[in-house]
C-alpha cells in the first residue's frame, strides 16, 4: 500500500499509534477539513481491504481487526468490503487474466458468472448456495446413515438373537393360544355336560319329588316288647304325610312258632282302637316279628298298648306279649 506522510499519519491514527495530543490534534484537523476527513476515510477503506486480503500483518492486523470488529458499524464495514471484493473479483476484466490464474477456486468459479447480468449472477449465486447447502445436508445425512449402519452392524447379532427370541415367543404364544382354545373348548364341553347333568339332576329331583308326592308314605317303627319292664313307651313321631304306620312287633324267641297271630291296639286305660287277625310272623334281623299296619288317622297323640296273641293250630290262643308306644304328631 503506497502511502505518503499524511496517509501514514492517518494510518497510525486508525491503528491507534498516535499519542493523545497527536490524536487530538489530528481529530481537530479532520473535523475542520473535509478533504482530510475524506482521505482518512479512503485510508480506512484501504486498511479494511488490506485486512481482508491478509496484507495487514502483525500488530497492525491485531489492532485494526479488534478495533474494526468492536462495533456493529465496523463489522458492517468489513462485510461490505468483503462483498465488494467478492463482486469485483467475480467481475474481473480480461486484462486481469494473469492475476486470475493465481486466484482461488472460489474466484475462478465466480469468473464463470462474469459474462452474465448482475441479476443472473446473483441468481446463480443463490443456486450455488442452495446446492452447497444441499450438498452439506447430503453429507450430513450420509454420515448419519453411516453411523446408524455401523451401530446396526454392531448390534446385528443382538438383533438376530432378538429375532430368534421373538420367533420363539411367538411360537409359544401360538401354542398357548391353541391350548387356550382347546381348554376353552373343553371347558365348553364340560360346561355343557355340567349344564346337562344339572338339568338332569333337576329333572330327577323334580321327578323324585313328584314320585314322593305320588307314593304313599309308610312309616315303620319297631316297638319294643313288654310293658311291665317299666320302660318308656316307644315314641313314634308321625308326620302328616304318613299314610301307613307299620308297627314291627318282635316276638319273644320262645313264641315265634305259632302259625298265626292276632294283635289289638288299645288306648292306655281305654278302649280298643283296632284289631287284626291271621298275622303271619315275618323274619327280621331280631328274629321273627309280627307287623301290624295301622292308619295314623285313627291314632292320636297318646300312649297305646298293643297286645299280641298266638293262635296255635289246634285253635288254642296264647297271650304272647304286650307292646307300648306313644304317638307324637308334627
Amino acid at each position: 500500500m503506497e502511502t505518503d506522510a499524511a496517509e501514514d499519519r492517518m494510518m497510525r491514527y486508525l491503528l491507534g499509534y498516535l499519542s493523545a495530543p497527536e490524536e487530538e490534534a489530528f481529530e481537530e484537523e479532520f473535523f475542520a477539513d473535509g478533504e482530510t476527513f475524506a482521505r482518512l476515510l479512503a485510508v480506512e477503506n484501504d486498511l479494511v481491504d488490506s485486512y481482508i486480503k491478509g496484507e495487514l500483518t502483525g500488530n497492525d492486523r491485531l489492532r485494526f481487526g479488534n478495533k474494526l470488529l468492536a462495533t456493529p458499524e465496523g463489522r458492517q464495514k468489513l462485510e461490505n468490503a468483503q462483498a465488494l471484493r467478492l463482486h469485483i473479483d467475480s467481475a474481473k476484466s480480461p486484462t486481469a487474466a494473469v492475476a486470475a490464474a493465481k486466484t482461488t477456486f472460489w474466484q475462478s468459479f465466480l469468473d464463470f458468472f462474469r459474462p452474465q447480468t448482475p441479476a443472473f449472477q446473483y441468481a446463480l449465486m443463490g443456486a450455488l448456495l442452495l446446492s452447497t447447502l444441499g450438498l452439506l445436508w447430503f453429507v450430513y445425512q450420509t454420515s448419519n446413515l453411516q453411523r446408524r449402519l455401523e451401530v446396526a452392524e454392531n448390534n446385528e447379532s443382538r438383533v438376530l438373537q432378538l429375532q430368534r427370541d421373538l420367533e420363539a415367543a411367538r411360537k409359544r404364544e401360538d401354542e398357548l393360544q391353541r391350548n387356550l382354545t382347546e381348554q376353552s373348548g373343553q371347558n365348553d364341553v364340560l360346561s355343557e355336560q355340567l349344564r346337562s347333568e344339572t338339568q338332569r339332576i333337576e329333572e330327577m329331583e323334580l321327578e323324585l319329588a313328584n314320585l314322593k308326592q305320588r307314593e304313599p308314605s309308610i312309616l315303620t317303627a319297631v316297638v319294643a316288647p313288654g310293658i311291665s319292664r317299666g320302660g318308656e313307651p316307644t315314641k313314634i313321631t308321625v308326620s302328616p304325610n304318613v299314610e301307613v304306620l307299620k308297627l314291627q312287633l318282635p316276638l319273644p324267641p320262645d313264641k315265634q312258632d305259632y302259625p298265626s297271630y292276632s294283635a289289638a291296639v288299645n288306648e292306655t286305660g281305654g278302649g280298643q282302637i283296632m284289631s287284626q287277625k291271621n298275622l303271619k310272623p315275618q323274619a327280621s334281623r331280631n328274629g321273627k316279628s309280627v307287623v301290624l299296619r295301622v292308619s295314623p288317622r285313627v291314632l292320636k297323640a297318646k300312649t297305646y298298648v298293643v297286645s299280641v296273641n298266638g293262635h296255635a293250630a289246634d285253635g288254642h290262643v296264647d297271650n304272647i306279649e304286650a307292646y307300648q308306644f306313644s304317638i307324637d304328631k308334627r
Binding site: 491503528l15 491507534g16 499509534y17 485486512y51 481482508i52 500488530n59 492486523r61 491485531l62 489492532r63 481487526g65 479488534n66 478495533k67 470488529l69 463489522r75 468489513l78 462485510e79 461490505n80 468483503q82 462483498a83 465488494l84 467478492l86 463482486h87 446473483y122 449465486m125 443463490g126 448456495l129
Partner: peptide
C-alpha cells in the same frame, strides 16, 4: 491500543443478502 497478543478475530463472511444488496 496496546501490542499485547490478543487472539485475532475471525472475519465474518458476507451473508447472501448482503451480496444481493451490493
Amino acid at each position: 491500543a496496546t501490542d499485547e497478543q490478543i487472539p485475532e478475530p475471525s472475519i465474518p463472511e458476507p451473508a447472501p443478502p448482503r451480496m444481493h444488496c451490493l
